[in-house]
């Protein structure tokens, strides 16, 4: 993997060591298979969709980073 950016690499990768390997689980959100990250407060943050239907990726409520209820 190569990063091609004018920003100093130290700046981009700062904090990489502290990034814990996040606890993720696979769930269904209104019929769409997705990978969510379980936060410390117990909430679920959408990491990515696992669906093969491209229309699912156009749905505004299924954008990576949103809190989802399961």
């Amino acid at each position: 993997m190569i990063l091609y950016t004018p920003i100093q690499l130290e700046q981009v990768l700062q904090g990489l060591d502290e990034m814990k390997s996040a606890k993720t689980k696979q769930v269904m959100i209104s019929g769409v298979p997705a990978l969510v990250q379980v936060e410390e407060d117990g909430s679920n943050k959408l990491v990515k969709l696992l669906s093969t239907d491209p229309e699912h990726y156009m749905r505004p409520e299924l954008v990576p980073g949103v809190q989802v209820k399961i």
């Binding site: 993997m1 981009v12 990768l13 700062q14 904090g15 990489l16 502290e18 990034m19 990515k48 969709l49 990726y57 954008v63 990576p64």
Partner: peptide, 14 residues
Amino acid sequence: MVLPPQNKTTKYEH
């Protein structure tokens, strides 16, 4: 690679 959270990113897999 997932970048540290201070970066604003566009995720290509989406």
